[in-house]
């Protein structure tokens, strides 16, 4: 397979910056790059300043952070659970978050902060439930992380069933609100939500980078991990929890944005990265680029309608995955 080229990091960073600048410049109103730079410094047309500083910049930042969080979370989970199909949403994170959000919608509360909080609490509850189920069910060999994967899938399925039951009896407005939330969007981005997510991504992402070598070793299987001095069960659960926390923070901020956590780590491997420390960092960069690009597409492809961001990422992700399958075959 190909090696990660020298200067590869430069290309990844440059690609992200290009996409980010274009995303700040384009939208319902296009602003020339020069005017964008002026607006950033607070010079020129007050409308342009308002659009750039208060609307586009937090939105692009939030999208980038969501992509970075999902990408690095997916890379860590695939490695530690030893499964190329693992992704944060598969493990009950999305289902739990949706249950939390739907409960708030069903109660008729119109408060974005409360929806965020409920989504975060819901996803963490689902993750703790999955961990508990895997501990109770995980008999036989100690520390079989496959049980954790199964437990996550089962908790997710249960959450989806709960949502369907809750929405079956809800009024149309609630259903509409819940549905839009589940499709994911960066529309409601504010500096506050972006800053909150930035802190989560910095802490949890940093922790994943710190424990990246353990992920390398977990990917070799539990026997080898034990022989290298790692308690596979404890270490695997720790990575699982951090990755889930990271994904939950992104879900709380922007709803469900599918396929990023699954596809992005595969792109990072495709460009030649193997060990998890660079893999997680590159997945964050690629994820950020992808989500900012998808959000740009979501708001510029069919104006004035904004397409759901989660649908765009899935539309981009599926063909990529099919191409992967074809190459692997």
């Amino acid at each position: 397979m190909s090696r990660f080229p020298q200067g590869g990091w430069l290309v990844l960073v440059a690609a992200f910056l290009c996409v980010a600048v274009i995303a700040v410049a384009h939208g319902a109103v296009s602003i020339p790059i020069g005017a964008v730079l002026d607006a950033l410094r607070g010079i020129g047309d007050p409308t342009a300043i308002a659009i750039v500083r208060d609307l586009r910049l937090p939105r692009v930042l939030l999208g980038a952070l969501v992509g970075a969080g999902l990408g690095s979370s997916g890379a860590a989970l695939q490695g530690s659970l030893r499964n190329p199909l693992a992704e944060p949403y598969l493990l009950g994170v999305s289902g739990g978050a949706a249950v939390g959000a739907v409960i708030v919608f069903a109660l008729g509360i119109k408060n974005d902060a409360l929806v965020m909080l409920a989504a975060f609490v819901g996803s963490m509850a689902a993750v703790v439930l999955a961990l508990t189920v895997s501990r109770v069910g995980g008999r036989g060999a100690k520390g079989d992380l496959r049980t954790l994967l199964l437990a996550g899938v089962i908790v997710g399925a249960f959450a989806n069933a709960t949502i369907m039951v809750a929405l079956a009896s809800a009024d149309p407005n609630t259903v509409r609100g819940a549905l839009f939330w589940m499709m994911g969007s960066a529309t409601d981005a504010t500096w506050r939500s972006a800053a909150w997510l930035a802190a989560s991504v910095a802490v949890a992402g940093g922790a994943l980078v710190y424990w990246a070598r353990e992920i390398d070793i977990l990917a070799l299987g539990e026997e080898t991990a034990a022989s290298l001095g790692i308690d596979a069960e404890r270490s695997g659960q720790r990575i699982f929890l951090i990755a889930a926390l990271l994904a939950a923070a992104t879900v709380a901020a922007a709803g469900l944005i599918g396929f990023v956590g699954l596809v992005v780590p595969h792109i990072a491997r495709r460009v030649g990265l193997r060990a998890h420390r660079p893999l997680i960092v590159a997945s964050a960069l690629i994820g950020a680029t992808l989500v900012v690009a998808a959000d740009l597409a979501a708001r510029t492809v069919a104006p004035p309608i904004e397409l759901p961001l989660g649908a765009i990422t899935a539309l981009l992700g599926v063909p990529f995955f099919l191409a992967q399958l074809k190459r692997a075959a």
């Binding site: 397979m1 695939q78 490695g79 030893r82 499964n83 190329p84 990917a219 070799l220 299987g221 026997e223 080898t224 022989s227 491997r269 193997r274």
Partner: peptide, 9 residues
């Protein structure tokens, strides 16, 4: 160990 199936290269 006897068994070791690396998930990723």
């Amino acid at each position: 160990p006897q068994r070791e199936d690396a998930a990723f290269p």
